[in-house]
Design a protein around this nucleic acid. Structure first.
Lengths: 232, 232
DNA sequence: ACCTGAACACCGTTCAAGT
DNA sequence: ACCTGAACACCGTTCAAGT
């Protein structure tokens, strides 16, 4: 048994940094999230985080073994925030739609963390709670166990995969992001019908549609298909 | 008009590097793909690529304006390889299923490159060909233009997003991958029914299902929903 | 016990100089 | 015309020294 068993006691003994801040895991995670929100994904580096905390960059290594550990701590905090305010309504489609959109929005709010954590299985408290909740919604809707698991898996992976995809896009440097957005008008919309009949015929729709995430549409298709199977 | 109009002529005049290699866009892209596959995504840096080519890092800036341009060239090459052997059958569901599974398999064959390029819009030849092909399959099936574009977008993003998700998982260090796989049996399968009734009831299915990609199931759900809309 | 500062081994990118 | 080498402004991480 060491003092680490009582975190608050251990924390009180910590010496303030030069700028008078007492470091803690919570403070570091919150500051990292704030940095990302205020200055973009590129703002998160150990050196910048140290500067923002008024501490030497190397002091952060007492709290996180590497940057990846910090990322996972941030991700866990985000899962908690996503579920914390969610309440089931009893309508399985509305509940899954709401959960999916919240997971996707949570990813977009913290793109770097989303990209790094989307494919991880943590087995931690918040994740377990999410599995129990979603499988529960599907079983409550009447899906047999095997089908409930199959749809749970597709649903969760879809939310995580689109969250990561759209996050990666959002985390791009601004100039690159704008260049890509312009490709639809500058390149695709100008292809002649003689060589590219299908693109030429739908160019107007491509320009309008491709600038937005396709997640809401993909989610609705998945819910449609699940509902149809339930009706059989 | 400059000599760049005839690339092969321009290329022939290039001077070999110190180690005797004549640089070209193709050689750089192929070397980059090889570097990524052999030594991981982190192995791709301008400096390492220069070293692998036997050229000064800065000489690559004659072929690509920034690292990002190189990434797009790699992405387009992967799209090209995916489409090169595909042939339409006239059955839109079978065609889209085949295309989706090929895109997913192509991502898994080059996991590190897939993770880095899945969310990019290249506007290059192979990507344009892919858009034309897939929108063509959907219009040929009878979807009106706006609907064809909406389903195209969801279909492509889903293939890319799941491809990247499953690639990121596959690209993890072996030890970490095995630790995560064990979480389903070591943690989830042992949760008691009293606290986690839904997980306990479906543990057998979770253990069996979660070790595989959910992409084939998610693809089938998307095709089901699309077919239902066509029937209306 | 905790934080600091210097050091190490890297990055992407630019541009004058060399061939 | 093409490649090189030095330079600039960054990274993540380690570890002996300071308080």
């Amino acid at each position: 048994m060491t003092e680490r068993v009582v975190p608050s006691a251990a924390r009180q003994r910590r010496r303030p940094t030069k700028q008078g801040v007492v470091l803690s895991e919570e403070l570091i995670v919150e500051t990292a999230l704030r940095l990302i929100e205020e200055h973009g994904a590129d703002a998160l580096s150990v050196r910048r985080l140290g500067r923002a905390l008024g501490a030497d960059p190397s002091s952060l290594y007492r709290y996180f073994r590497h940057t990846d550990d910090l990322m996972l701590a941030i991700a866990d905090e985000l899962i908690g925030r996503t579920l914390r305010t969610w309440r089931p309504t009893g309508d399985w489609r509305a509940d899954l739609r709401d959960l999916g959109l919240r997971m996707h929005a949570g990813a977009l709010a913290h793109p770097r963390a989303a990209v790094l954590s989307s494919y991880r299985v943590t087995g931690r408290a918040h994740e377990i709670q999410a599995v129990e909740t979603i499988v529960g919604v599907l079983r409550g809707a009447g899906f047999p166990d095997a089908e409930a698991v199959r749809i749970y898996h597709a649903f969760v992976d879809q939310a995580l995969a689109f969250g990561a995809l759209d996050s990666a896009s959002a985390a791009m440097p601004k100039a690159a992001r704008e260049t890509e957005a312009a490709v639809w008008t500058a390149t695709y919309a100008r292809l002649p019908a003689t060589t590219h009949p299908h693109i030429a015929a739908t160019a107007r729709h491509l320009v309008a549609d491709m600038r937005h995430s396709s997640y809401p549409a993909a989610l609705e298709l998945l819910l449609d298909a699940a509902a149809a199977r339930l009706a059989d």
